[in-house]
Design a protein around this nucleic acid. Structure first.
Lengths: 216, 216, 216, 216
DNA sequence: GATGAATGAGTCTTCATTCAT
DNA sequence: CATGAATGAAGACTCATTCAT
């Protein structure tokens, strides 16, 4: 649906999008009816179908906008940074902040990812995000900053960690997004293992050899 | 609903569970009707409600069983291993294998996590999994095997990485679960950064100093 | 449910109410389906739920309106009468007429009184009617027109007699409501016993003393 | 359904009747399912249909038994009383007691009276009760004990008053059945009007003539 | 006598969408 | 642009009854 809209029309449209985003997030897409939306808005059913072809189209629009906006906010934060590792770190931070600010959209994207009908949109969006991340990973490898890992795996892993930690620690537990971003970044970059030399010392102190080579 | 069931009854019940699991995963919970299930099974509508109080109860049952089974399979693999880092690695492997074998349930759990109505079950299940993982992380810290990190964060991060990588690389791209598990474990344990000394060399080779201290 | 209705809408709503009243009375509330109502009306199922939240709400609405209307018609007839005994008599007459004109509602109210779900509405309505009646009874006692009886009991008794006699003699046997009302009023006011002095004579005539003290 | 039953069988049957009576009264006939009854009894569905042809037949049986039992208890109390007015009084008392003891059946009979399907049974039962009552009324008229009223009207009125007062004052407010019966009897026999001579005095005291002849 | 299993028509209700005004 | 009205397929769930074992 492409319609030339007056100012008032654009406002209405935006109103619908915002309300729908909230209700879809709270009550679930399937369980939120068009009737509920228009009733809450105090308008007739026709209004909805004037601006959107269908409920599904509205949802797709929400998803599209969300992914676009998330990406924009990442690029903004990263813009002038040269160091690829720093870009990764800032990318994580941008995501954390955006998700902290857009809880509803976070939820909607998660949900959409589980539904065959929307998975394609989501997958495409994720591919873009993965592509962005991979670029930084590759750069970092090229510059010898990070180990020679598979950038595709790493990119997915980074996104997963960031998203999940925000979901739990920002949304559920109310931690600061920047702090959570730092935790995520640290985890991603340094892993959790102690450096081998430290481990030796620790083992020596503990007086046994168990810790010597747990992972090869 | 607790009902005395004959052998035949237990079979029927299982049939329903299996078919529903498949259909819920493929078509989505909300979009799969009870009518569809019983029709596919070639039985009357009453049969469904003989075995389950409601569609939702059936779904909860599926989720419950899934989480229980996943945990069981992890404990089985870890049983006799003493080294906590090894236990982490094997836990990741067990998850990867189970998810590889239970694509439908993977999907269902993901979906359930996004729905207010089921989020509680899921959150509880996740808390158990996080608890298990945290225990190994703490053990490893105590033994000086891994850095002094926040076990709660780490546990969530580990689960997120594993789950996501399996979703993409096993389910979507068809990689071997064990291989994906190894990638995940390596990522989790070692992060992606080169050790500081290597980085120095690399920087020296590259003839500049940019890589010296990317993270503070 | 409060909805802005057009003229056409109000008509539809009324149509539904009238048809439902009839069908509920004839076939019983539980046995009359929404489907039957809309089919008879030749409209889609949605129409019903456009005007009413549920079948039960519709029924409650019918009951509410009925009780309100009955009361209105009583007050109208009594309006300018000063003598409380006359007011009782006219109240009985008004009820008899209204019930004669609203057989379906008579039945529905009777039915509703036997159903836990509706008993509360009915009880409240009955309390109002009892309250109205009690007022006249008290007035009459104050003016020395009737004996010093318990107005609450009397009010209930009056309503019971009136309602029952209308049910049997107007609805079933087709008598005139005004005549039935007079019978009821006479019964209520004068009872059935002969005055004591007449009884003495009668006993004398009959030549025995059995009738002397009928109530001990 | 007539089946020769063992002792155990008769017990079972009685069990079902009693439970059904209670549930029908509490939850309503239509809303109480056969499934609920057999589940509560902890038996299979077959049991129900072994003893009764259908749910409706069971209900009819309950009604039949109830009306028979009520009548029996009236006849018992009246048996040796010669005075017809006393017989009326005692009949009222017997009804009040029986209804006090059989709240559930009271309700069921009321309900059945409102349902086309059962109204016939009920009407027949009521006719019997009316017949019994009329006989006493006629006797009393013949003996000059009560005024020359229409026995049919009077009989209906007596039953209505008694039933209603028990419903409100015994069941709802917990009064003693015998006391309520006395109120009903007094109302029925004496009405509520003061005797004409007393009224004259009262009017005289009040110093006006309003009370002189309210009913012509 | 009794059980668990099964039937399937029927119940109330929801909802995306269309349309006359 | 917007409204109230209408559609009707579809949904979850119920329930009296039957029947093989």
């Amino acid at each position: 649906m492409t319609r030339r809209l007056t100012d008032r029309g654009r406002e209405r449209r935006q109103q619908i999008i915002e309300l729908a985003t909230r209700r879809f997030a709270e009550g679930g897409y399937d369980r939120t009816s068009v009737a509920e939306i228009v009733t809450t808005l105090g308008v007739g059913k026709g209004v909805f179908y004037w601006y959107f072809d269908s409920k599904e189209e509205l949802f797709q629009e929400i998803l599209r906008e969300a992914m676009k906006d998330l990406r924009r906010s990442q690029q903004l934060l990263i813009a002038d940074v040269d160091d690829p590792v720093e870009r990764l770190r800032l990318g994580i931070r941008a995501s954390a902040r955006w998700w902290a600010d857009h809880r509803d959209l976070y939820r909607l994207l998660e949900f959409a990812g589980t539904q065959q009908d929307f998975a394609r949109s989501i997958r495409k969006g994720r591919e873009v995000a993965v592509g962005d991340t991979m670029k930084h990973v590759r750069d970092a490898i090229d510059r010898g900053l990070i180990r020679d890992v598979d950038p595709l795996y790493i990119a997915h892993a980074i996104l997963a960690v960031t998203s999940q930690l925000v979901g739990v620690f920002v949304h559920q537990k109310g931690n600061e997004p920047d702090r959570v971003a730092d935790m995520a970044a640290s985890f991603v970059l340094e892993g959790i293992l102690r450096p081998a030399d430290e481990r030796l010392e620790a083992a020596a102190e503990a007086g046994d050899g168990r810790a010597l080579n747990p992972a090869s």
